[in-house]
């Protein structure tokens, strides 16, 4: 662990497994990454690769029978004096006072399903005000003023009256805006958004993404955007980590990743990103060959080898690659590149 004053969160070899009767699902299996203060990070990968579990691991809300069994999550918590104090979130009691102070206050989260992520029998305002009073030193009136103000900032018209609406009276896009407002209302240092636009129509998706990019700049917080769509992530974030079966297979800044993707999985993912300037719109997007294997039957060696177009028999199905830097700020976990870095 370093004292690099820029670091906000340093995740070190974190493992979160689900202990089911059918077997152990290694949803997150040795993930490491850094996130600087005010920086943006995209997390991409196909369905089931552990993106959501990773985010839940950070704020310690992994549901049973899941457990974070290994690793550290160093959060450089700003302290009152102005300095900061690193705390290992993974070592805290999951329902304890300290993590609950951070969760929802300094690190907030937006979920995929705006339609069902609010309680249907409480008003939007009630649910946002609750978050504010929990984490800020504010009376109910002050909290309400903050809530109205935040609702306005996320672009909800007539925020003063909309605040007393029940969720079912708002459209999906408006609900997701309200959700964003709730996550911003406590002035977080990190906002994690788990597929925030997947459930919305295309026009609304673009609006919400733009809004999030603007707000990230305005509030100066760090942001972690989770998506299965590389295109979505590329628009909004600076760095990207690509996950496959609970592991990070490649990590780079957006430009490098798009210009020089190393991992065959990343290359395949990129082929499936629609290009705006593609002339023949009828051209079909390439889908990745095969499908994600069952979580109980993790392939030996490199987990991607059964689907890999550059599979090397006798190596990829035997040796498990580790994440190694191929250049400054660009690492990949693939045997194709192992000699380059080993030498």
């Amino acid at each position: 662990m370093t004292n690099d004053s820029d670091t906000l969160i340093r995740v070190e070899d974190v493992r979160t497994h689900f202990f089911l009767d059918e077997g152990v699902v290694k949803a997150v299996d040795g993930v490491s990454f850094d996130l600087a203060r005010g920086a943006t990070l995209g997390v991409v990968g196909e369905s089931g690769c552990g993106k959501s579990v990773l985010a839940r691991t950070i704020i310690r809300i992994v549901p049973r029978p899941g457990r974070t069994i290994d690793g550290a999550i160093w959060y450089h918590r700003p302290s009152e004096g102005g300095g900061e104090r690193p705390i290992d979130l993974a070592s805290l009691e999951a329902d304890g006072a300290e993590i609950r102070d951070i969760r929802g206050g300094e690190i907030t989260m937006i979920f995929q399903e705006p339609m069902v992520s609010f309680s249907p029998v409480h008003t939007i305002g009630d649910q946002i005000v609750e978050a504010v009073t929990l984490h800020r030193n504010a009376t109910r009136e002050e909290a309400r003023a903050i809530a109205v103000d935040t609702l306005r900032r996320v672009g909800i018209p007539n925020a003063e009256s909309r605040i007393d609406e029940y969720p079912f009276r708002l459209s999906g896009g408006m609900r997701q805006r309200a959700m964003i407002a709730m996550a911003l209302s406590s002035n977080p240092t990190l906002l994690m958004a788990d597929e925030p636009t997947t459930a919305l129509d295309v026009t609304t998706q673009a609006q919400i993404l733009e809004l999030m990019a603007d707000l990230q700049e305005e509030f100066g917080m760090a942001m972690m955007l989770i998506s299965h769509n590389l295109g979505v992530v590329a628009q909004t974030t600076e760095r990207i980590i690509v996950m496959y079966l609970g592991k990070v297979v490649e990590s780079a800044d957006v430009r490098t990743l798009f210009r020089d993707p190393k991992h065959p999985y990343t290359q395949e993912l990129l082929k499936s990103v629609p290009k705006l300037r593609r002339r023949r719109q009828t051209e079909r997007l390439a889908a990745i060959y095969g499908s994600v294997p069952s979580p109980y039957e993790r392939p030996a060696g490199c987990p991607f080898h059964p689907r890999c177009p550059q599979f090397m028999a006798g190596e990829c199905d035997v040796i498990e690659p580790t994440l190694k830097a191929v250049s400054e700020g660009h690492s990949v976990s693939c045997l194709l590149y192992s000699e380059e870095t080993d030498s």
């Binding site: 809300i61 969760r103 907030t108 989260m109 979920f111 309680s119 984490h135």
Partner: peptide
């Protein structure tokens, strides 16, 4: 198991 419970949990409310 509903998402709104997870939302409430992510706010930092005690269980």
């Amino acid at each position: 198991g509903k998402p709104y419970v997870e939302t409430a949990r992510s706010k930092g409310l005690s269980e």
